[in-house]
Amino acid sequence: MSDQPNVGRVQIDDVVIRFATKQGEMTALDRTRLVLEPGTFTALIGPSGCGKSTLMNAIAGFVTPSEGRLSLDGTPITGPSNDVGVIFQQYALFPWFTALGNVRFGLKQLGLSKAEEIDRARAALDEVGLSAHADKYPQQLSGGMKQRVAIARTFVVGPKVLLMDEPFGALDAQTRISMHSLLMGVWQKHRATVLFVTHDVDEALLLADDVRVMSQAPGRMIRHYNLTEPRPRAFSRSGPNLLEIREEILGLLRPDEDLIAT
C-alpha cells in the first residue's frame, strides 16, 4: 500500500538449525549471519537440501532456531504472524474457499465491514489480473492462476516481509516469465522485503537486488552478489556482467561429480 522503506528489516544473528533424526542430530543450517534490508529483494540459491528452505521457515516462524536469534525490526520472531507473508511452491490455497474467499481469509482479522473486505479482496485479485475468476475454486484454476491468487492473498494483508519458497518451481517456462513481471509489479507497488528461495540461477539474477549463494549441506552463505542492473532485466541487454555472474554461480553450484558417483 504505502512506501515504508524503514520497516521489514530482518536480522539473522548467528542462527544454527539442527534437527533430530534417527541417525542423531543433523545440522540443516550452519551458523548464519545475514541482514535483509527493508524493501530489498534477496534471492537465495543453493543445491537441494542445503537448508535454504529451513532458513526461510525460521524467518516465517515455523521453525525455532537451535542457536542464535532472528528478529524483525528489532523484535524477536517467535512464531508465524501476518507481518511475514509466505508464498508456497504448492500454493496452499484453501480448496473450500473461492479465489475471493481465499483472499478474504487474511482480511478477516482486520475487523472490516463485509463490503469493505470484499472490495479490498477484489482489488487485490484485480491487481494480479484475476478479477474475472474471483468466484472460481482453486481446483478450477491453472497453476499460474493459483499462484497469483496466493500472491494476492499474501499482499492484501500488507506483510513487511515476503518469503517465497520456490514459488514458480511447478510452473512451465512461459508462465514463469509472466509471473516474474507480475511479481515485480506487485512488489514495486507494495515494497515488502522479499526473500526468494530458488534453484534457478536465471530467475535469481533477473529478479533480485541481492543474490546469495549457499553451500551444500550443512548450508552456509558462501557468496553474495549485489545487482544494480535496472529492471526489467534480460540477459540479452544487461551486458556481460549478469552472464559472468551466472557462469560463476553455476560453477559454485555444480555438484561434486565424485559425490554423485557414489
Binding site: 516462524g61 487474511g106 492473498r153 499474501t154
Partner: peptide, 25 residues
C-alpha cells in the same frame, strides 16, 4: 496438510478461526 496450517498462521489467523475455517474443512 501442514501447509494449510502454515498458510493460515502466516495470514494472521487466530487459533479459533484456524480451527473452524481451516482444520474442520
Amino acid at each position: 496438510p501442514g501447509t494449510y496450517l502454515r498458510a493460515a498462521r502466516s495470514l494472521g489467523a487466530s487459533k479459533l478461526r484456524e480451527f473452524v475455517t481451516v482444520i474442520i474443512p
